[in-house]
């Protein structure tokens, strides 16, 4: 009974996805379309490019280890640095009304600058290469984390802070055990947005010229007009985006179980 129900749920969700894929496959094969190759050919290109390696290296090709490690290193260094800086600065600014009032117009402006507009500037200052890519990512994604942390820290329940004060919880301990956990749901939301922005900026910075990375693979495929390979790159980036989001949500659900539980009861 239960299996049947789960199966039904799956069919209800997946039928449209399946239909779209089948239609895409049939139509593109029938008209022999160049720009939108059939899904099976994209999958094949994806396999050849990155996943046809020996079992000893988890089926990853040499190409894959090169591309993925380059891209992901940049992504996570940039995101991690921005995340750490955003939380620290955001907490400091959010705790002080004066600092917040002074900083918020500047911060709102900096957040509004679309990060790619600074790419030419960073290329001039740092030259093409890893530093430029990491700086682009970090500078582009620090604002959502910073502003969300500010907001979270400012909106911590005042009664919780009063309770902590009454029971003599010291300043530092108050920050670590009351303020940061109370702000955590908003901080995590900021980090999640930042991660998806970081992926976008990783792609853009690689499209500008790089020798390794998924973006450079995309660019190479475009220049040699190999459309299935280019689509493989697009799909791979989609998979990464999907996986990042899923892993982050899982982490969030574990770490913020209290928040989700408390929310569910509140509504």
């Amino acid at each position: 009974m239960r299996i049947l129900k789960a199966l039904r749920g799956f069919v209800e969700r997946a039928w449209l996805v399946a239909l779209v894929f089948v239609l895409w496959e049939v139509v593109t094969r029938a008209v022999n379309e160049t720009y939108f190759p059939p899904p099976t050919r994209i999958a094949q290109a994806l396999h050849e490019l990155w996943f046809s390696g020996p079992a000893s290296s988890l089926f990853l090709t040499e190409n894959a280890t090169d591309d993925f490690s380059t891209s992901l290193t940049h992504l996570f260094i940039g995101w991690g640095a921005a995340g750490a800086a955003g939380v620290v600065l955001g907490a400091a600014i959010g705790r002080s009304q004066v600092l917040y009032d002074m900083a918020s117009p500047v911060l709102e402006f900096l957040r509004a600058v679309p990060p790619p507009t600074l790419l030419p500037f960073f290329i001039i200052v740092f030259q093409l290469g890893s530093t430029m890519q990491i700086v682009t990512i970090a500078f582009g994604v620090v604002w959502p984390v910073l502003l969300n942390t500010c907001d979270g820290v400012r909106t911590v329940e005042s009664l919780q802070l009063e309770t902590a004060r009454v029971f003599g919880v010291g300043r530092f301990r108050r920050l670590v055990t009351i303020i940061l956990p109370g702000a955590a749901p908003k901080i995590f939301a900021g980090l999640r947005v930042a991660l998806s922005f970081a992926l976008i900026l990783m792609v853009i910075s690689e499209l500008f010229g790089s020798t390794a990375g998924i973006g450079s693979e995309l660019l190479g495929a475009q220049r040699s007009f190999e459309l299935p390979r280019m689509w493989a790159g697009i799909v791979m980036l989609g998979i990464l985006g999907f996986v990042f989001n899923a892993v982050f949500m899982l982490l969030e659900r574990r770490l913020l179980a209290w928040h989700i539980g408390a929310q569910r009861l509140a509504t």
Partner: peptide, 25 residues
């Protein structure tokens, strides 16, 4: 001095277990 507030849902810390809530002070 200790205080018990009316609004327990806002004066207890939802991210701490009951025991840790009591032990924190």
């Amino acid at each position: 001095l200790a205080v018990v507030f009316q609004d327990y849902s806002r004066s207890l810390f939802p991210w701490l277990s009951v025991r840790d809530n009591v032990a924190l002070p």
